[in-house]
Structures are given as structure tokens and as C-alpha cells.
């Protein structure tokens, strides 16, 4: 059976991880490559790097990061953050990235999804969607959830799919950081509406939250950052518990 995927997410700035990392015996907790290698050894199925570098050198910085990761890591990884045009994506593909993730650039210019899918194939293009409830409706947000758009979340996701998104990374900004569980209602609705893989994000606080999101929504993957970085959830323990609950996961 196709396994459900567990995906740690690393925030990177100027080639260094930015959120505090407080687990295992890393020689250099700020080194994204060492951290990534560690996660791959623990049994992570995939990794996402969100690059928040804001300098003019950003593309070069991202390419260097991707090359360093591809040299060391034997599982797939995605890079996102500030990818605005075909040339950005092309440089990252040639550096060894398996997928790219686009978010606000796609909202501002939806045709970018078509262009990327035509140039590199749908499997290369993840559309990341940040959503927050306003007046009872899920609305797409930009800038880390601070800036509402006019797009309704499900409509935007369906549009992204039809334009060539190969996967959806859906983050509930209402749940993100709460450690109170994923937004299973929305995730179930989205997952049943699309025919591409959905990655759940935002709200993971316990092993049970991962069991719940897979059992209640049937999403393909679940992503989290701090619970993994701080060692609050260890991936081998998480996978053991998922297996106990008859959720198919990859053995390492």
C-alpha cells in the first residue's frame, strides 16, 4: 500500500535554520543539511525547506542549499520561498530539488502554475495555501496569514489543481502554532474534492493528532516543524503509533 508520509519542515535564512532546534546531538543545530540528514535517518519520508532569505543573493543561496542537501540526503525534498519565475525553478531543479513550493507568487499570478507544470511536469509543483477563517469562510491568506485575499480556499485549491498543481500543502493559520491538532474538517473537505495529494499542515502537537488527521481526513501526508525540532515527537515513535492504528507507513 502507498504509505502516509511524515514531513518535517525546516525554515532557512541565509543558509541557516532559523527556528530553534533543540534535539539530538547535532554538532551544528543551525546547519540545515545536518538536520535534514538526521531526519532522514530517523525515518522522515520527505523534507520541506522554506527559505526566507530576503537578499538579492537569494537564488544563489537557495541553489547552494539545494545542492548541499541533494548531495547528502537520500529521500525527496521540496524547496519553497520566493520562487517567482521559471528561471528560479529551473535553477533549483538542476541543483537537485525534487519539487518546488509556490504560495503568494501563485496567488498573484495564477498562470505561473501552468507555466511551471508545462515546463517541469506537475510532479514538480506544490502549491502551498495558507488559510484562515473569516466570517465563517476559509479565505486564502498571504504573508504568513496576515494578509487576506479575495479567494475562497477550496475554490483556489481547485483552480490550482486544474492549472497543474501536482500537490497541495494546506496550512491552517488558525491552527498553526496552537498544538491543538490539524484542521481536520477543512482537510477532509479539500482531500475529497481534489485528485492530487494533500499535505496537512498547522496544529500538530501530539502523536494522536497525526493519527486523527490520517484517520479522519485520509490526506496523503502530514507536515510539522516545532514538534519535531524540539524533540517533542520522535519520528520512530510516531510511526510506531501510526502502524498500531493500522495506518500504512514506511519502515526504515
Amino acid at each position: 500500500m502507498l504509505a502516509k508520509r511524515i514531513i518535517p519542515c525546516l525554515d532557512v535564512k541565509d543558509g541557516r535554520t532559523v527556528k530553534g532546534v533543540n534535539f539530538v546531538d547535532l554538532r551544528d543545530a543551525g546547519d540545515p543539511v545536518e538536520l535534514a540528514w538526521n531526519y532522514s535517518q530517523q525515518g522522515a519520508d520527505e523534507l520541506v525547506f522554506l527559505d526566507i532569505t530576503a537578499t538579492v543573493e537569494r537564488r544563489k543561496t537557495m541553489v547552494e542549499l539545494v545542492k548541499a542537501v541533494a548531495r547528502q540526503i537520500n529521500i525527496p525534498f521540496t524547496i519553497g520561498g520566493g520562487i517567482n519565475e521559471i528561471a528560479d525553478a529551473d535553477a533549483l531543479l538542476n541543483a537537485g530539488a525534487d519539487k518546488i513550493s509556490i504560495n503568494s507568487a501563485a496567488v498573484r499570478n495564477p498562470a505561473l502554475i501552468d507555466e511551471l507544470a508545462n515546463a517541469f511536469g506537475v510532479q514538480f509543483v506544490i502549491v502551498a495555501v495558507d488559510t484562515r477563517v473569516m466570517d465563517g469562510k476559509n479565505i486564502v491568506h498571504l504573508n504568513g496569514g496576515r494578509l487576506p485575499t479575495e479567494k475562497q480556499t477550496l475554490n483556489w485549491i481547485l483552480e490550482a489543481e486544474s492549472r497543474g498543481a501536482g500537490e497541495i500543502l494546506l496550512t491552517s493559520m488558525d491552527h498553526d502554532g496552537t498544538k491543538a491538532g490539524f484542521d481536520n474538517g477543512l482537510l477532509k473537505q479539500v482531500n475529497s474534492a481534489v485528485n492530487i495529494p494533500v499535505i496537512a499542515s498547522g496544529g500538530a502537537g501530539s502523536v494522536q493528532h497525526f493519527v486523527d488527521v490520517f484517520q479522519q481526513t485520509n490526506v496523503d501526508a502530514a507536515l510539522a516543524a516545532s514538534v519535531f525540532h524540539y524533540g517533542e515527537i520522535l519520528i520512530p515513535d510516531l510511526k510506531r503509533e501510526l502502524r498500531t492504528n493500522n495506518i500504512e507507513v514506511r519502515e526504515v
Partner: peptide, 12 residues
Amino acid sequence: ESFKVPHTGWNQ
């Protein structure tokens, strides 16, 4: 029904 394409991820 309930099988997504592309087939993406780890399979046996």
C-alpha cells in the same frame, strides 16, 4: 475512487 494520480510517495 480515492486513488490519486500521479502515484506519489512510498509504496511497497
